[in-house]
Each structure stands twice: as structure tokens, then as C-alpha cells.
Design a protein around this nucleic acid. Sequence first.
RNA 1: GCGUCGAUGGCGGAGUGGUCAAUCGCAACAGGCUGUAAACCUGUCGGACAUAGUCCUACGAAGGUUCGAAUCCUUCUCGGCGCA
Length: 408
Amino acid sequence: MAAFNFKIEAKQGTARAGVITTPHGEIHTPAFSPVGTKASVKGISPRELNELGAEVVLANTYHLYLQPGEKIVEGAGGLAKFMGWEGPTITDSGGFQVFSLGAGFGKSVSKFVKEDVPREEAVTVFDQEVASSHGQLAIIDDEGVTFTSHIDGSLHRFTPERSVEIQHALGADIFFAFDECTAPTEPYEYQKEAMERTHRWAERSLKAHRQNIDANKKQAIFGIAQGGQFDDLRKSSARAIAEMGFDGFGLGGSFSKKYGDDSLESALAMLKELPETMPVHGLGIGEPGDILASIAAGVDIFDCVAATRIGRHGSIYTKRGIIHITGEKYRNDYGSLDPEGVIKGTELYTRAYVAHLIHSKEMLGSIICSLHNVGFTLNLVKEARQAILDGRFIEFRADFMRNYYQAS
RNA sequence: GCGUCGAUGGCGGAGUGGUCAAUCGCAACAGGCUGUAAACCUGUCGGACAUAGUCCUACGAAGGUUCGAAUCCUUCUCGGCGCA
């Protein structure tokens, strides 16, 4: 992997600033990767992303496989070319969808695997009608995952090998091994089982990648660790993934409050088990406070849908916390969207105007808020990086947290 | 002028004797959103205390029938349509 390199420039405690080199350019870490699930960061053009300071964009294997199909993307010359983005790209493996699509039926995934269906028969027994009647779109077995498309209901199957094959076609600079993301609420036994399965899938993903000489020259593969909220599982998962020979490490899990108690702190503790030279990607970590906590623990890259999602729905990040621009008090507020942090491309818009756009469902409102939030997050990470280089990250983080979570 | 149909909470529009402070949609307001099945979801939505709940004011206006009316009757006001 000559084309891929990670260099640490400065450290402060476990926090570090560095540079990741990829065939499509450099990523200065800590870095935030806006999420363009379907090869599009919702509402924001590649040129704007560039102007906001983004250096890398993350897309999703599951979505691009279903639509338009990885061959189309490959035919365009790869993900970056396809979407008109001139920098590095990352693809997620589809492992998260194993969780988010399966979660439609609560804990059915574990039930299905452990009780209703014998492992070896899970696939053949898959009953689309039964599954969909429960709103469940994915069923896991040890070999892989069978799922129905959320677009047209058609039946598909991912295995680690298939995920890697698709990601080779998509051609991102960095891609992830196929994993099983679990809900933090799953019990120990299931977390352990899923983690061990993820480890086996990681080895298979890595093997499938190393067998492709051509892809190895252009793409780096990161292995994802799991373990839920259990410290011992987290640590053993980190060690197992670290020993396999991946180019980088993916901090897996779902830290959304929606799916249960957040286990970010315990997940971050696992990073102590990793060799210092290994770049770490915090999957789906994107709330300002979580980003800073993660940076402090040694995470180098982040990706998160929050910036664009909450923006699209009319909420924006400010140094004093999130504000909902649809609030009554902003209807005649002719001040800047965020007086303390005006983001490039949003300079001319007032809160009253943006509030009106969101109220009247004009798409520009969602675009402006998304621009602001992505810019805000990129700035946060950029400032954190500079703070590490200057040796004042601790103070920077403390200051930010005090302002952001102060009562307002 | 005569006939006819209608008048319901910010708007649209259900309800046509008790289970109606009144279905539903929109708007409004509040909250949520962390590897995007998300330009989405949840809650509130006459008023006052405010958890349950209790009380008050309410279905154009006034009167009446009835144990009980948004619902039935009378008159009036306003509006649509038809005929003059």
C-alpha cells in the first residue's frame, strides 16, 4: 500500500494531528468527512464542499449497489469521478444497514438467528413475506446478510467478499470491511456473538481485498471493531482487528440515543489497545461534543449524517448549542444565521429569511442550514487540529464544551 | 322578493339528540434526529388551574322543545345557487 500513508504530526495526550495520504490527495486529521450516502452530500455540491474545507467524502456501498449499481459508478471512473469530487473518498461497507434495516423489528435479528432459524438454514428459510410483515428488511446468518431492497423490495445478499467486490468497483481511497453493527441495547451474549462474527467477516474482507493486486495499489481497507457497551469485548475486538493487518481502524457501533444508552466512552477506551500508527475512523460520530471527546481519545476521521440531516430539518449548530431556526423568536430576527460563526456561502442570509425558507418548505432553506452545519463541523475539527498542533487542545475542548452546553 | 342549500375551533372540512371541547387534513407551536429506509418522525393544539383531573366558554344570533342539543323547531343575520 504505497499510495496510502498516515503520518502523525503532533500529539497531546492521546489526541493527535496528522496527515493521511491517498491517491486522490491528503486528508489533514482530525478530519470530518461529510456523508454523501448516494454519492451526494444532500444539498451540497462538491464545489461547495471544497470551499467549506472538506477534504474527503464518504458514500455507502449498500445504497450505491442498489442504485445506480456499482458498475455504473465504476464505468464513470470510480466514486470521486462519478460525483465530480476531486478529493479522497471513503465507502462504508453496508454493515450499518445490517443494523438499521434489521432494527425495524426490534431485536428480531438476534431472535431470528438464535431461535427461529437454525444458522445454517437462515438463508433458505428467509421468508420475505414474514420479514416484511414485521417491517424487517435484513436477516443475518454467519455467512452474510440477506436483505430486501428498501427501494423495490427485491431480494439481495451481501457477504464480506461481495461487499469488498462492490467497494473495489466503487473505487474509494478508503473502504471498510463488512461488519455487523449492533444496537447498544443488545445483551452481552449477542454482542459477543456479533463481534466474533464481525471478526470472521473482517478476515474474509481483508483476504478478499489482498487477493486483488490492482485494488490493493489504489485502495486502503479499514477493519471495524464492535463490542457494544462492554469494555472487555471492546478491548478484545480492538486487539483482534489491530492484529489482522488492516490499513486503518474503524470504531464501530451506533451511538445514537435513539437506539439506547450511548456507549461512546467505553468504545473510545478500546483505542488504547491499538498501535499508535494506525489511523482511526469514528463511524457515525458527529455531535460536536462527541467529536471532541473522540479526538481526545485518538480518533482521526469522522463521518456523520447529523450535520446535513438536522440542517435539512431546520436546526443549526452554533457555539452556544443547537438552535431550531423554525422557532417563533427567529421569524423577525434579521441577524446573521450564526453571528459567532458565519459559514462561507451563507454570509448574506438572515435568520428571518432562513426561518421563512424552512417554514415555506423552500429547498434553499435546507441547503443553507446544511451548508452551515457541515461548515461548522469542518471548522470545529480544523480548530481542534490546530489546537493539538499548538498544544492547547485540552483548553480548546473545555472552552467549547462550556459554551456549547451552557444553559441558554 | 320567492324558493333552496349552507353557516362547526387560525383555515379546510367531518359530525346530524346523550359515549363531543367535537374525527381528519393543513397551518401554528414544541421536541427529536450521531457509519441516512429520514426534505423525516413524535407531541401539543378553546381557556384557566394544569398529572390524573376539575371548572369555564364554545359548533352564525336570539328564543324554544327535551332529563339532555353542534345535532330538532321558530325567528333573525350573513353567504351560495335557482326563479323572478
